[in-house]
């Protein structure tokens, strides 16, 4: 039991970070505004969680200009995808074992 719990990734113990990763798993690039609206968060909260995922190298950041407005988009890295699916596997295992 302990072993499986250890497999649960600390980076994903937060719902917001899990939510961000869920969206990035099924989309190539998602911009800040879409993440914010879908997860119903304030700019500040979303930014802090994005930062921590970035520090873990789970997501890539792309900054571009659409017209004159800056647009920041995110995508999941290979490392992030692996960590996320391992986390999901661990969750499933936990559910099976009880």
């Amino acid at each position: 039991m302990k072993k499986i719990i250890n497999k649960l990734n600390k980076a994903f113990d937060n719902k917001v970070r899990l939510g961000i990763m869920s969206m990035l798993m099924v989309n190539d690039w998602v911009d800040f505004k879409t993440l914010k609206e879908m997860l119903d968060l304030t700019d500040g909260r979303l930014a802090s969680h994005i930062k921590s995922l970035e520090e873990n190298e789970f997501i890539d950041v792309k900054k571009e200009f659409v017209g004159r407005k800056p647009l920041t988009s995110y995508s999941a890295t290979k490392k992030g995808r692996k960590a996320f699916s391992d986390h999901l596997d661990a969750l499933e295992e936990l559910l099976k074992n009880r």
């Binding site: 719902k15 899990l18 969206m23």
Partner: peptide, 22 residues
């Protein structure tokens, strides 16, 4: 409680994936 929490998390993930891609 823990079990229900995990189940809830999984279904939230699923719904987010669905809503954000379709």
């Amino acid at each position: 409680d823990k079990r229900n929490e995990h189940l809830e998390t999984l279904s939230e993930i699923r719904s987010l994936m669905e809503r954000s891609s379709r």
